[in-house]
Write a protein that binds this DNA or RNA. Structure first.
Lengths: 296, 296
DNA sequence: AGTTACTGTATATGACCTACGCGTTTTAGT
DNA sequence: ACTAAAACGCGTAGGTCATATACAGTAACT
């Protein structure tokens, strides 16, 4: 409910679709979805007052995705949720693709503010971790076909936060952007791995307890899920099919394994990933002489 | 989806576990797709000799995906390509989900061997770069819903290669696996960014030259694509809608930008990402005392 | 021979996105 | 106040998709 219900964008650009000629000559027509993303301040027009709104539609889509996954997000289901017919949605959203883009930006609104003055490393760690946690809380985000999705206000705000963290670091802006982009990539992969690993663990618990496939995760013992080995399938496959002469290096490592079994991806792995990447970033910053003297 | 309640599927006949149950006690029923992935040597049975094969189907799917993207990969299109009816495919593949898993493993067969003895860092760089290049060559790979996809022989071989690279490094196997997993994540994000950046550049060239949206990339001047600024949309959006007071840190960095414009993601960014991550890995290895003395 | 298992096919179902056109409602311009 | 334009929500329908089901032909085994 606290999400983007009303976009109070001060940049109220009434209805002028093309960018304005502001000297830079960047007068290029922007996709319609961009206008919808950026406030697109409703210019009072004729006709009946709309009973439905894009925000309502997006909210219903978010609820659906949270409850039943992205596959459940269909125009029909959304229309049902808001109490209208499927075709009514098309008055407020150009199509499903645009809806997904709006969803992607809407979730970014929930990302927290990074407090200033906590240092670049702690700041970047918070920035990265917040995104990973968001990805874990809303696994469907990773399924979004974000191919070349235009940036929305909330996502830009999140980038702005990263630049805020990097404010005391003396580095050209393009280098900062490269670092931020690197962390954003890491986030994507890390939450993906975490989610898949958890899904595998849930599957294993389901199989062991003999419950049907559609059992909701809430019916399971959380401790059992944490204890389950998400690599169980992998191990079984290797033991059943794989030939040691075919994968000599893998089996050699297996042999020296403490208990011959793989360890689960967990919270510790998230910390591991962040710290390794930030170590790399720190090396980069040092090499560029970008760290203040107290940043040793 | 797993909504199929106890639906055995049309192609469920060979319940004979094709692999040799070698008495390790790990006799757990594996998903049917695993059997198809791992050889699953067809036991000569009665009936007409199959004219079609799973390999043909997968190949046709790969061709389709390469030519027109993953969205073009439908059972009907594949059937048309191989000259059979859509339902014929289900005799060789349990469904579309399995087909996608088979595709994912099939492309991994093209990954090269990493030569031994080139050192852990150069080896891991090759390993990482090869994957990124594969992702760029086949962008649809990143759209695959690989949720908890079981590993296939080619993918396991690729993991084995990584363990081969890390052979001289003294590290417990689980730590090696964590490092490999971290790099695999990085690969995912890096190719994704690269692809989206390129797609944006193509779009920009298309718009500038006034060509229709469906124009194949091959009709464009490659030099123009390389020269195009993939951040053009981002810049225009910021200039048109964004308020500097709303994104102070971002605009401050903008102000000190050399030429006030963003730089393109290119080959250099791939190198940057790999080197930063490997720097982090190196710091980790050093901390664990895992590097041989000559590895300074 | 008969039996059995396996092949590819034809038909059908349900879900999905969305183009098109309709009647209705409200406001802008006169 | 009156009119006309514009926007609203809806009904219908068409196309694509994955796949369940029933069927006819074929090859091996008994």
């Amino acid at each position: 409910m606290s999400t983007a219900d009303t976009t109070p964008g001060p940049a109220e650009q009434p209805q002028v679709p093309p960018g304005q000629p502001d000297g830079t000559g960047a007068t290029r027509e922007l996709p319609a979805v961009v206008q919808r993303l950026w406030g697109a301040a409703a210019p009072r027009r004729r006709g009946p007052k709309p009973a439905l709104s894009a925000a309502q539609i997006v909210q219903a889509a978010l609820d659906l995705a949270d409850a039943e996954g992205l596959a459940a997000v269909s125009m029909a289901r959304i229309a049902d949720a808001v109490g209208y017919t499927p075709m009514a949605l098309y008055r407020h959203v150009s199509g499903k693709e645009e809806l997904l883009v709006l969803m992607a930006d809407a979730v970014a609104a929930e990302l927290p503010d990074i407090p200033a003055g906590i240092g670049w490393r702690a700041g970047l760690e918070r920035w990265t971790r917040a995104q990973i946690e968001l990805g874990i809380a809303r696994p469907w985000m990773l399924e979004l076909p974000l191919s070349a999705a235009p940036p929305g206000p909330n996502r830009v705000r999140w980038i702005d936060q990263a630049f805020g963290v990097l404010r005391p670091v003396e580095l050209p802006a393009d280098a900062k952007l490269a670092v931020i982009g690197l962390l954003a990539q890491h986030v994507l992969g890390e939450s993906r791995v975490h989610i898949e690993s958890r899904r595998a663990a849930v599957q294993q618990v389901l199989r062991e307890s003999g419950l049907p496939d559609g059992t909701p995760e809430s019916d399971l013992n959380p401790a059992a899920i944490d204890a389950a080995n998400p690599y169980a399938d992998f191990e079984t496959v290797l033991a059943t099919y794989a030939d040691p002469t075919m994968y000599p290096n893998l089996f050699e490592s297996f042999a020296t394994w403490p208990d011959n079994s793989l360890t689960a991806h967990s919270e510790d792995d998230i910390t591991f990933g962040i710290s390794v990447v930030l170590d790399g970033v720190e090396a980069f910053l040092r090499r560029r002489g970008a760290l203040p003297d107290d940043g040793s």
